[in-house]
């Protein structure tokens, strides 16, 4: 559904020195700098896929999303979304996509969301019965049906974002671009929106590209992760593969049998050379260790032999930590 080949984008921006002096100088003399926001990006996204686009600020995430949504004209390369060249902006293409930007509102500030939805119905020419059914499903899923007649400016940030999501989905888009859809929201609202996105996928099977700074969004929503750094894709693959190839550690958690361990906890393993890695937690009932992947099995067997273990689990490192480490490593490289 989405296909990009060698997509590149360069901007010319002028550099300004700080302060009034810099501003005065820039009035007459401009130092131009060429910024390569995208450098030959290849990307394919199929129906039903949610691709998590991850990268630091300024890495090129939003530029890539905007190019694929047709807002931005790339400097080079090709792209096809639903068989259309996005930046030609054919109505047929625009009728089938949706864009949500967490930092920019699309609904009119002074109008109740319900009115904004009627306008969108007209814009996308959604038949009356389908519109009513969609609106019912979407408002019920987000539990916000009772707020349709309240002006957007009187809604909380979370409620506003829910309305923005509904606005974007009323026309059953086949391709969705979600740029920071949970930014600034509290945990409950983030969770509601994540569940909603998964529910929408189950029903409509769209292709989605999601950018977020919240690793939990990426972890809960995306089986596939695309890592972008300085305009280049440095990783494109499954979440599990990312962990398998790049997670350097595993986390072992052992629950100890009550009563059998000393009250102050098992002896701390100073001098216990059998405990590898880093101790994250060590008390009377629980032991948590971070160990190199290759030594996880040995560490587990050591724990089982040396302590009264009731239950043991071995988990992958938090994906956010892995991605952060990868980005740091790439920067250093």
């Amino acid at each position: 559904m989405i296909k990009a080949r060698g997509l590149s984008k360069t901007f010319r921006v002028h550099k300004k020195e700080a302060g009034l002096k810099g501003s005065l100088r820039a009035l007459f003399v401009r130092d131009w700098k060429t910024v390569h926001a995208l450098k030959g990006v290849d990307l394919d996204v199929g129906a039903g896929e949610i691709v998590g686009l991850v990268g630091a600020n300024g890495a090129g995430k939003t530029t890539l999303v905007k190019a694929l949504a047709g807002i931005l004209h790339p400097t080079g390369g090709t792209a096809e979304v639903l068989g259309h060249v996005p930046w030609r902006r054919h109505n047929e293409f625009r009728r089938q996509i949706a864009l949500i930007m967490g930092q920019k509102a699309q609904l009119w500030w002074d109008l109740p969301a319900g009115d904004g939805f009627l306008l969108l119905r007209e814009i996308y020419q959604v038949p009356g019965d389908r519109f009513a059914a969609n609106l019912k499903t979407l408002t019920e899923a987000l539990q916000i049906g009772d707020k349709l007649n309240i002006q957007i400016r009187r809604l909380s940030l979370g409620e506003r974002m829910k309305m923005e999501l509904i606005a974007a989905l009323l026309h059953n888009p086949k391709v969705l671009f979600l740029d920071e859809p949970t930014i600034g929201l509290d945990l409950a609202a983030q969770r509601a929106i994540r569940e909603f996105i998964l529910d929408y996928r189950r029903r409509e099977n769209p292709a989605m590209i999601l950018t977020s700074h919240y690793m939990e969004d990426i972890e809960k929503l995306c089986e596939r992760i695309v890592l972008i750094r300085d305009g280049e894709l440095v990783y494109d693959g499954g979440r599990e593969k990312l962990l398998a190839s790049y997670a350097l550690h595993k986390v072992l958690t052992a629950h100890l049998r009550a009563g059998e361990a000393p009250a102050e906890g098992p002896a701390r393993p100073q001098g216990d050379s059998g405990v590898p890695g880093e101790i994250l937690e060590w008390n009377g009932t629980q032991v948590k260790l971070k160990v190199p992947r290759s030594e996880a099995a040995a560490a587990a067997s050591h724990l089982l032999q040396s302590y009264p273990v009731a239950d043991l689990s071995i988990e992958e490192e938090d994906i956010g930590t892995v991605i952060e480490a990868m980005m740091k490593r790439d920067k250093a490289a």
Partner: peptide, 12 residues
């Protein structure tokens, strides 16, 4: 402000 972004993705 870049509000034009949303107008550009609409079929109108």
């Amino acid at each position: 402000r870049g509000d034009l972004d949303y107008y550009l993705v609409r079929p109108v």
